[in-house]
Every structure is written in structure tokens, then in C-alpha cells.
Amino acid sequence: MSQPITLEDVLSKNETELLAQLSEKELARLYWKFRGLAKTLERDTAFWNSTNENLKVAYETLDEKERELAAAYHIIRDDLEVAQSVQSALLPRMFATMASELELGVYHKQLTEVGGDYFDYFRTASDRYAIGVFDISGHGVSSALVMAYLKAQFMTIMERLENPAEIVEWVNRASYEFLREVRKYATVNFVTFEESTLHYVCGGGYGLLLGADGQEHIFEKKNHFLGLRQKPYLEEQLPFVVGDLLVLYTDGMVEAQNLEGKDYSVARLNDVVRRHRTLPTEEIVRLCVEDYHSFRTQDSDDITLLIARKTA
């Protein structure tokens, strides 16, 4: 006598014609199995609907937060644009005495909207002039604020003191506590010009003097950064006559790297200047920047390059 067909037989053999041979009990099992699956599906659907609804709310919240973030970003962006125009307005313009004796070329680029590289032209107490190139530690808004602070310090003292070492020392003393408090410091390359000489104070940064007679002088870094120590600054004197070329720059260009991780370097920049020393200063600057751009992968710091030729 053959065994009665069970629901499991139908399912395992996958033969639907066996359904007709199922007993009433087995058919009832089939019914409840189907109802059970439908109930599981109903519970799962309710679960997924609920999680989907939760996701929808999460997306809406995310969307709202994104709008808030965009609005906040817009405000910050506007503020930075204002800060950028303020900082640009703080950058110097040549005054008459300077313009009559110097031919200048400058490349100045902050890494972000505002930054910590700073250069300036000053009138001295004896109506001569001076140039300063500074690199404030860090980047961005905080460095830009320190830049404005240092400019104010120099403006305060320039018309009272003549000697560059005294000027820089006064600014260092006046700024020391503030810079310590805000944990900033600044390199300083400060040069005053006489009839046929220049006096410089170099505490960080780079300086190169290419004499028209072929002589070269690299600025000696004998001094400390602004805001690091409170001790006197030393100054050096060099001849600076018609045709001489003075090059001042911060570390932004020379420390930028190429794909192999190699620095652009002081040697390479100085070499580009040497090769084009007879060209107009703006052209020399343009060629330096072009060479720099062909080398580096991307800017990684604020950049200042200033080239001055004595013309009279």
C-alpha cells in the first residue's frame, strides 16, 4: 500500500499535479503555510515601510541641514571676500621717491582668500624708503589679522626711527606679547635704501642681491623671527647702485614640490633670476612664476616674490 502524498512530497518533487492527491489535512496545512508566508510578508512590508519612512525623514533633515550649511557657507564666503578686499587694500603702492629710483616687479598670491604673506613699502624718517617682506606662520584669516597688526606697528614707528635694526627691534618688542598670546610668529626681511647702499635685517625669508658688476650677495639670516625672542637685531650693509637687482621672497615658491616630492628650491629660483637679470623686473617675475608653475604640482603656501632694480 502506497504512502499518502504529503505537502512536503509536492514541494520537494515540484509536481503540481500531485496537489489533487493531497488529503484535507494536508490541504489545510498548505492553506496555513500560505497564510503564514502572507503574514510574514505583511510584517516585513510594514517593517520596510517604517524604515523607508524613517529614511525619508532622515533625507529631509539632511536636506534641511545642507541648506543651513549652504547659507552659513555663503555668509562665511561673503565675509572672506570682504576680508580679501580689505587685505588687498592693505598692500602697498609705490610712492614718488621710490618710483623715481626703483623698477619693481611683484608676484603675491595668498593660498586662500586671505593669508599671512605680507610685503610693504615704507617711507623713512629722512624721506627715504624701505621694503619689508614678511611671512606670518600659518595661513588664512588668523595670519591675515596678524599681518594687519604688524602693518600697524610698522606704520607707527617708521617716521620716528631710521635704522632698520632699530625699527625691526621696536616692532618685535611691541608685538612680542601679542604674538606669543596668539601663537604666531613672522619671518622678516626688512631693507632700507640710501643713495648707493642698502641696509637689511634678515630674520627668515630669502634675499639675493645681483650686482650690475656681476657680484652676488645672498642675505644672511642672522636674526630671529618676529615674536620668537626678545633680543637685538643685527643689520648688514651692501652697495646698491644703478643696475643692481634685489630679489626678496618668502618660502612659498621654493618649498613647493613636484610629483617626485622634490622642492622647487632656492637654487632654481635664483638661477631663473640670474638668467633673465637684464630683462624688465616684471618680465623676470613673470618668467620665474612660469618656471615655478611648470615645476610644482600645486601651491602649498602663500607666495611673495619681489624684484627691484635700482634705476637712478
Partner: peptide, 15 residues
């Protein structure tokens, strides 16, 4: 607190 309709979630957690 994370779900608007938490009932189906709690049923599923129990299971």
C-alpha cells in the same frame, strides 16, 4: 525615538 511608526520595527526586533 528614531522612528515615526515604531510598531512594525519593535515587532521585527522581537522576532
Amino acid at each position: 525615538r528614531s522612528y515615526g511608526n515604531v510598531d512594525p520595527i519593535m515587532v521585527k526586533v522581537g522576532i
